[in-house]
Write a protein that binds this DNA or RNA. Sequence first.
DNA 1: TTGTGTTTTATTGCCTCC
DNA 2: GGAGGCAATAAAACACAA
Length: 326
Amino acid sequence: MAGGGRVYSSSGGASFLLQNQRGSCAPEPLDSLFLSGSSNVSSTSPFLGSSMMSFEGVRRGNGLKRSAFQQYEHEDNCDEEFDEYFHQPGKKRRLTADQVQFLEKSFDLENKLEPERKILLAKDLGLQPRQVAIWFQNRRARWKTKQLEKDYDVLQADYNSLKADCDSICKENDKLKAEVVQLSDRLRLKDEEMANSEQSDTNKSNQEPQQMPIAESVSSEGEVSKLSVVACKEDLTSVKSDIFDSDSSHYTDGVHSSLLERGDSSYIFEPDQSDLSQDEEDNLSKTLLPPYIFPKLEDVDYTDPPANSCNFGFPVEDHAFWSWSY
DNA sequence: TTGTGTTTTATTGCCTCC
DNA sequence: GGAGGCAATAAAACACAA
């Protein structure tokens, strides 16, 4: 017994099928049952022409696939065998291709089954209303599965497209990061060369008896550090030209473009000296480090990369090269 | 012919709605 | 509380390769 107090029967729905499909043995075509204008239910049904249709149209010109009926259609004594086949308790009977096609068309019109429509369909097809209901229920389940597969395919296509974009951007990001590291190394080498040069100058000046410390010299005349600044600027100019000549085509990310959009790329390396104190100039001459760069670069947050698999920011360990000069 | 995977029909239990 | 829908599942029917 079915749940919910329902009473199901699966053995009583073949009356029409027996009559209809047994034509070779009992030639009583029931086409008239489905022809419009006849006295059959569907022809007078308010659903005909809307959600209902005639089984005749489906039956006509439709070759049966291998079905239970085919197995018995041309045999002698088919009455007994047919009855035997359909009266086996607990045996499942597949619907004929015609019946399925009819149900499919009905389903296409409306995939929900109102009670009246169910009764009419059952009468038309010679099935139990319960069988029609079950067929619609299973058909809705299949439709839903197919729909899910379609949705999945669409989502997969979207995902693949986004992933391709992400991969492309990641590669570009890696390339730019490598470039930054390379340029930073060059800056550091320049700085070290400059420091060595200053050291040798200091050693030479220490041999002269009245040589003043650089800081004092700067405070009194400012000549040494100014010369250093000029020398640094000359060095940096060569580096700068390398930076902007190396591959300007992809300086379109936030860092580069934000710098270039200021209209004067040289501001990175050429702070307005009129705003500098002597000490600041001194610092510039000693470190050569672009402290002037970093405040500008702070527009880009390198410490908080996006939380996806594609790390557009520099990882924490990558910050090492930013702090080497401090 | 047979084993195996797939499809189809039917059942069961739970849920919602009226 | 009954009717009906749905998800999960069973089981028969079917398809097909070996």
